[in-house]
Nucleic acid binder design. Sequence first.
RNA 1: GCCGGUGUGGUGGAAUUGGCAGACGCGCUGGACUCAAAAUCCUGUGGUAGAAAUACCGUGUGGGUUCGACCCCCACCACCGGCACCA
Length: 810
Amino acid sequence: MDFKSVERKWQQRWEKTKLNHFDRKSDTQKLYVLEMFSYPSGAKLHVGHWYNYGPTDSYARFKRMQGYNVFQPMGFDAFGLPAENYAIKTGVHPKDSTEKNIETMEHQLRAMGAMFDWSAEVRTCDESYYKWTQWMFLQLYKNGLAYRKEAPVNWCPSCNTVLANEQVVEGKCERCSSVVVRKNLTQWFFKITEYAEELLSGLDGLDWPEKTKNMQRNWIGKSTGCEIEFETESGEPIRVYTTRCDTVFGVTYVVLAPEHPLARKLTTPEQREEVEAYILEASKANEIERLSSTREKTGVFTGSYAINPVNGNRIPIYLADYVLATYGTGAVMAVPAHDERDFAFAQKYGLPIVKVIEKQGGETELPFCEDGIVRGSLNFDGLFGDEARDAIAAYISKIGKGGKKVNYRLRDWLVSRQRYWGAPIPIIHCEKCGAVPVPEKELPVKLPYDVEFRPDGKSPLAKHEKFMNTTCPKCGGKALRDPDTLDTFVCSSWYYLRYADAKNDHEPFSREEVDRMLPVDTYVGGAEHSCMHLLYARFFTKALRDMGYLDFDEPFLRLVHQGVILGPDGNRMSKSHGNIVSPDEYVETYGSDAFRLYLMFGFSYTEGGPWNDDGIKAIAKFLDRVEKLVLKIAEYKVPKTEQDYGAEEKALDYARNYAISRVARDMEAFSFNTAIARIMEFVNALAKYDNLANKNFALIRAAAKDLVLLLAPCAPHFSEELWETIGDRGSVFEQSYPKEDPDALRLDEKEYAVQINSKIVAKVMIPSDYDAAKVEAFVRALPEIAERIEGKTVRKCVVVPGRLVNLIVG
RNA sequence: GCCGGUGUGGUGGAAUUGGCAGACGCGCUGGACUCAAAAUCCUGUGGUAGAAAUACCGUGUGGGUUCGACCCCCACCACCGGCACCA
């Protein structure tokens, strides 16, 4: 088959007949199949895109043939850092390079022959899209879900610019190798923590990989503990959070994160110098370094003391960078006897270690960090674990020094970026009125084109006077725009909603459309988005629901992660490894159907693996074989008289129906490699039958038609072409997916493995309708079995219906 | 360091979830067609021993549970991925 002309022919025909356009008027059941949209950072589609989109498109086509009204849109996540970095390096404007990349990629996506509904295309960098991204920001702001606070950024003092984590290599700037420090800026946050509980509990009802749900659970990190207030001699109390309040009598010091607001206030004059040096040093350590547990604990004494509320002990206050400002209260009570980090720190700085928990029924070796029996803690002695924690928390609450507290590890989402290539934050800063939202009718706040985005200490937009200078919507006085842009995760947190109503120019989407089309039924994309994108999108959906813009709780009902295709050397494909495989040459040589089929057959979809093209020729051969066989069968004339239906016909019919049932099951499960294997088996059976001298033409023709239908989702152009020859009128994708005939799958006999003492000794056919007793009798009567068990007692007989008999003899 | 995942022939990968390990391919062996090659078709193909029937071994390693373990439990090894010292 000349795949090039065939691909062209059918792509044009699909386009003309609008085959891939979602039918909004139809009342058949909708099915929203979504692949994570492309990020056009590279100029071209890579194997990873193909691996995500090709097989998933086959799933979508399969569901369509099963009768669903399938919606499968595609778009581009077009804002982001790489385009800006590329611009800084080459001088090509991000808008120009991005638009060019999108053009190339869209062309390639169309050539893939997927059933994307391009009429719903979305590009996040278009004004018509980011206008509504800004609108989203304003809604969150109006509902108290967006706020400003100080937060540290990675700062390169030499480039005078903010760096992404990715741009910090071993604590140094990737461009100039200066040591990166952390610097506080006032930035916008979304209050995702307000939804922590629902984001956690909502996971239970989702058809997502258990692994991913666990990752999100850990990321949200709910814990139930106790907040405790420690008075200080300077008057300002320190609040700490602990999950081990049963150890509070063993507290021998308190530790604050170096960034803690009280850090400086609690420092005595004689400790000042040392503390300042430590705070500076801590600001240099990048987060990864700081989180390494092999790193030696460091800290510094503030000179101040706190009072342990339960026993009045006077304990020193330290700063140490093993305590994080972002978790809990940014301060911990240290119990060296029962916490490994505190133990190591106490040993290093010579702090007392007081044992207050004893191992139940054993020697207590310090640090002892498990639950145990409370000792040396007044009337709490003898209590154990949760019992002790409940009692002590209640006591702390009674004396007004805190109490039980649920804590989440999840932090609010920082959305400000000091960058150019993103959606401007629609806020105006007025000296009199403060932060004032841009009125909705003035959206979008357009991103100006003529901007100096080379790094020099300011957000690129801050240098654009025309952009910055404006008037305050409230008082009409002179005011400045927010110079920052939004994190691109904001853009991708609602795109799946926009697809439902992509051309709407007076609202982001109509409620009616979005409630009809959403939630997404099946979402397919990489596992690297488990914690960020997938959590942010869930947050947006819930927030929009609470504001009354939509009426469902979760955006993605089912989630599938495709695996990663590695380079042939087993490493992740990257320019630096020099192991990038381009899909283009394969598509050029073998055609898009063969390439897609190879991706589906050669890997376990959710596992991925190193690239290896050994099998791709075989796939092309397989398609040739199918073509020859089907075209040959298409020539057969079915006689008017009825034809024989004997054992061979029954075997073919079995193979056909077995394939139908298994392929459907495997396609549903994204187990594409086994689905294709079952189709291959069917082809083998069909070819075998075709070799017979006498054949039932009606049966073989019907079987060949089924073969084309089964193959259609996986090799769409190829199958359309064959269907035109052998099938009925119309597109193969307008046909129903074959349904298996249960009668044809019913076998009179089944092969049993016969075991004696769990070793296989024979294989034998046994009528399918035999019950366990009959099967046992049948097996024991077999001469070769009878001979083996003669004179021995059969102590037990295990029968697995349809599979196996195990005689235990002694 | 912690968390998660993976480990099956020469190779990509299957295994109805505790029931015949290695489906379906690739590669390789032998054969047919051909002067020959390619293409195509047929045959065999986990390892060891054996002419063969067959026997033994075999799912990273070592234990365990079970009539029966790639699958469940314990300990360990290797590789991959993620990371927030989470108090």
